[in-house]
Design a protein around this nucleic acid. Sequence first.
DNA 1: TTGCATCCGGTACCCAGGTACAGGCTTAAC
DNA 2: GTTAAGCCTGTACCTGGGTACCGGATGCAA
Lengths: 151, 151
Amino acid sequence: MRQDPDGPYLRSGQVAERAGVNPQTLRYYERRGLIAEPARGPGGHRAYPPDTVTLLTVIKAAQRLGFTLDEVAELLDTGRRGHPTSDLRARAQAKIAEVDAKIVDLTTIRTALGQVVSAGCDSLTHCTCPDCPLPFADLARGPAPEESRPT
Amino acid sequence: MRQDPDGPYLRSGQVAERAGVNPQTLRYYERRGLIAEPARGPGGHRAYPPDTVTLLTVIKAAQRLGFTLDEVAELLDTGRRGHPTSDLRARAQAKIAEVDAKIVDLTTIRTALGQVVSAGCDSLTHCTCPDCPLPFADLARGPAPEESRPT
DNA sequence: TTGCATCCGGTACCCAGGTACAGGCTTAAC
DNA sequence: GTTAAGCCTGTACCTGGGTACCGGATGCAA
C-alpha cells in the first residue's frame, strides 16, 4: 500500500502547519534536542517523517501538563533509549504537588480579590471603604509571582 | 514628637532591606513610575520617606493579586490624584475572572496528571501501560502555557 | 525559464520583572 | 586620615519559549 518508496516525507512548513506551530519552532526544538535532526533532501531541505506531527502534539501536551522543554527533552530521551522506567510517573507525581500548591495559592488570591470587591475598596493606598482589607501586608510575603514557568 | 526636623529619611539600602526587596529594584520601580523620585542628600544619595516601605508592601501585594507592574502603576496613579473611583473594584473583578479561569485550567491539568500516575504510564511516546491515556492530543490545543504573567 | 513560495543558516529581538557589573563617588566608623 | 561599606549612573544580562529578519539557495508550476 506504500505509495512512495522513499516514504511520504514532509517539509518543515507542512509539519508546522499540521502540528499548528510556527515553522521556526521546528528548528528551535531541533536545537533544543526535542526532535531529531531529520534527513535532508538533495538541496538541503529538511525531510520529516510524518510521525513528527504526533511528536509535536505530545510535546505540546506535556508542556500543558507543566513540564519545561528541558524536562520534556529528558522524558523523551529516557523514553527513547532504555527500557521503560517509573521516571515519568515520579515526575508526574511531583508536578501534581506543584500544581496543587499553585491552586491553593490562586485560591488565596481569589479570596483576597473577593474581599477587595465586596468591601468596595477604591484605592490601593488611600482606600476610603470601611473595614478596608488592604494592604494585605501578609500577602506580600507569599510566593514570588513566578516568572517564566508554565502551568 | 518629631525627633528630626528633616524627618527620619531612609537610604535605599534601608528601604530595600525593610521591604525585603533588592536595592536595584527600587531604582527599577522608580524608572517604571511606581515610586516617586525621592529627595536627595547633599551627596546625591536618595533619601526616602519611611512610608515608602509600606508602599513597596502594597506593590508586592498587588503583584501577588495578579496585577502587572504597569497595572499597579496605573492603580497607584488613579489613587493618588483624583477622587476615589470604582476603577480598582472593576479591575479586581476582572482579575477574579482570570484567576478562576486559571484554576479551572490547572484542575484539568491536575486530572490529566492524575491519570498518568494511576494508569502507570512509563513513556510519553511509547507507553506500555494498558488503557494508556497519553498522548492527550486534545490537551495540546488548550491555552498556551502563558509566559511571563504572574498569578 | 521565469517567477514566486518556501526553505536555508545565522543572528537579533520579544515579553516581564528584575539582577548584575563596571567604574567612580560619599559616608560612616575607627 | 584611612578604609570599607554603601551608594551613584549607565548599561548589559538573565529566564523560557519562542519569533522575526536577513541575504541567499531551492523547489515547483506554468
